[in-house]
Amino acid sequence: MRRSNEPIAWSLFGAGGMLLAFVGPGLIVVTGLLLGVLLADQPASVYESLLRWLSHPLGKLLMLSVVALSLYHTCHRLYHATHDLHLRAPNALMLVLFYGGATVLSGITAVVLWSIGA
């Protein structure tokens, strides 16, 4: 029987799932509700703080980890959901679409993060 490449996808899925379980709810409260609603009256200071944070290499690395692992986690589940829902599509296309999509978006995020504070 042929060895599956699934361990790569599953490891990224697992890491992302663990990350989202541990900090996901907090992260959404911060970047979605705290930034937009509670701190709405002080956009300039929020900008300064986040810029300072994302200018630091460690901040960039943390943000990239969060984004990339969330993407691989969610795309892995969505890929398998297409199978569960009996959506008819060539498997190779779906692999490129979901895992390729997660990779491209992670790459874009890395480039954008690189440019901050540079």
Binding site: M1, R2, R3, S4, E6, W10, H80, D84
Partner: peptide, 14 residues
């Protein structure tokens, strides 16, 4: 492991 590593092994499980 030769069986378990395959798509039809553990990796069909969700």
């Amino acid at each position: 492991l030769a069986y378990l590593n395959a798509e039809e092994g553990v990796w069909s499980c969700t």
